[in-house]
Design a binder for these strands. Structure first.
Lengths: 155, 155
DNA sequence: TGAAAGAGCACTAGATAAGTGCTAAATATC
DNA sequence: GATATTTAGCACTTATCTAGTGCTCTTTCA
């Protein structure tokens, strides 16, 4: 249905939270208290992000998660593929190929569209997510500053 | 999972088929014979497209469906929203709003991304799908027998 | 009048997503 | 060293969405 899963949403929300507290370990308990997401589910999501080296974890009191890489380097493509598996807009465009192979009339077209969407997701980073939020918080008359990633420049 | 449903895939395949036979009524039986899609399901899809005035139908022998509007006017956004309902990349960005409202940290960012994806889908039409295929066919005489399951478009 | 074709209705099964419970292992603090 | 805190790991349940199908009615052409 061309929609992100809750895993991705929760993951991005948590990452945005961590991005606002660079270097500080934040526990799942703390994040959940703030975001209101289901606790166990967010724990799973962060575990996955930890295994993928996007965040790093320490255990014990005062432990938790923090970003392992700068927000500018974390594209939506990366985060989503970690939390949902590889992005494939249509089965047509997947490596497995579609069920119709030779006669599929839309393979190439969908492939083009999928590539364009992929480009959007590649270019949009966690830093952009944070920036978009900050601009909103700064007020509706917020000045559009310099984009933090390539994407914001193009249409 | 950020993926099109079979309904959309079948719908686009059928529309591409119809686009290649302008003005001619094509029956579900005929289209299915060519595309190999499940018959009843494609019938439902075409019915929905008919109700949405994208195609028009006549009954009886010699009847079937044909495009009601030129392929250039049929955006992916239109087709997908008819077959899957309104596109919403994340619940955040929907009219209903997300479950977290005020505290959602990614609402604005996801909204931006959703808008960009929307732009891609708005701009890409059935005519483009057909064109992409024709281009592939035109250049494939030398690569007959090459696996077509490979990702078609990289650009 | 009969065959062809869409229109309408409702259901089944499978896949994916969402969410939860419990236990083990690591680590800081007292 | 005991204890509380916190991540890690495992398996399961439930809900929702997706895919697919059967049957009958209505329209229309020959």
């Amino acid at each position: 249905m061309l929609r992100l899963t809750k895993r991705s949403e929760y993951g991005l929300m948590a990452l945005a939270y961590l991005a606002a507290r660079p270097g500080v370990y934040c526990s799942v308990r703390e994040i959940v208290a703030r975001l209101g997401t289901p606790r166990r589910l967010l724990a799973e999501v962060l575990k996955a992000l930890s295994q993928a080296k996007v965040v790093e974890a320490t255990r014990g009191p005062g432990g938790g998660y923090r970003l392992k890489r700068p927000a500018e380097e974390l594209s939506l493509t990366l985060v989503i593929s970690i939390l949902e598996g590889p992005i494939q807009v249509a089965r047509c465009a997947s490596d497995n190929g579609c069920d119709f192979q030779d006669i599929c009339t839309i393979q190439e077209g969908i492939g083009e569209v999928a590539a364009k969407i992929q480009t959007v997701l590649d270019a949009y980073t966690l830093a952009d997510v944070v920036r978009a939020r900050d601009e909103k918080l700064a007020g509706s008359s917020a000045t559009i500053g310099a984009p933090q990633s390539r994407l914001a420049a193009e249409a």
